[in-house]
Design a binder for these strands. Structure first.
Lengths: 130, 130
DNA sequence: CCGGATCCCGTATGATACTG
DNA sequence: CAGTATCATACGGGATCCGG
């Protein structure tokens, strides 16, 4: 399906409503921490504590939840080394790595249109406030 | 910035935490109706009622909210024809159209990895339940 | 036809304290 | 270090009624 899809404007992209798996990806991309975590894991494996330092602002709880969801979907692998103190290493799987390209598209588009969106938003706000 | 970005795994994609505009796009892509609405607007302008029929399951309230947010960000234009009964036409702006390509990437990736994710999820669920 | 106003609920997120 | 448990809160989203 992927290679045959070139013209977005003439193709009913989402003919399936909720059940074609797009929703799941949207949820990941849309939540607050997943993108950051994946980005930090992209260069290589990281330990829990390292991730928490790298992903600024994330709480222990949310980092755990985010990693669990990614692990559940097979995007992140979790390796426990039975040392003292315990040591757990998280790494992107092959599928997880392929997601970084998608995230790259997202980030690129966001940066490319950031200014235009910001300006439109300001304009709209002043127009509706006044 | 976009063309210079080819290797995701060696590039700190999101060095800015919350304030680089990526969050806004994530919110749009992540919410329940925006993607559907944009997809339905991709082929051409639509009236409110048409959209509500096309986007199955959306309530009047959520369709309005979704369109307002898109309009605020300059992704959708709203044209009112002062007829009786009133007639309002929604259309993608140029920026909005460029977003359909991003959505295309999202949908393609989701479909390509749908099976793998679903299997990983099943496996994880049975493993954690047992 | 278009959409604003109101009420209500489930879930995502955050803060904090506690364990192996 | 790497979590888990609990409580509190905010926000998205659904249902419904009303107005231009």
């Amino acid at each position: 399906m992927s290679e045959g899809h070139t013209d977005v404007t003439t193709d009913p992209l989402v003919s399936c409503a909720e059940d074609c798996g797009v929703r799941d990806v949207q949820d990941r991309l849309g939540d607050k921490w997943t993108v950051h975590v994946v980005v930090e894991l992209a260069p290589g494996p990281r330990r829990f504590r390292e991730l928490q330092r790298l992903v600024t602002g994330v709480s222990q709880r949310m980092l755990t939840l985010t990693l669990r969801r990614l692990e559940r979907d097979g995007l992140v692998s979790r390796t426990v080394y039975p040392t003292t103190p315990p040591q757990v290493e998280y790494a992107l799987t092959e599928t997880g790595h392929s997601m970084t390209h998608l995230i790259g598209q997202l980030v690129d588009w966001s940066l490319d249109h950031r200014a235009v969106i910001a300006r439109a938003r300001e304009e709209w706000d002043t127009r509706t406030t006044a």
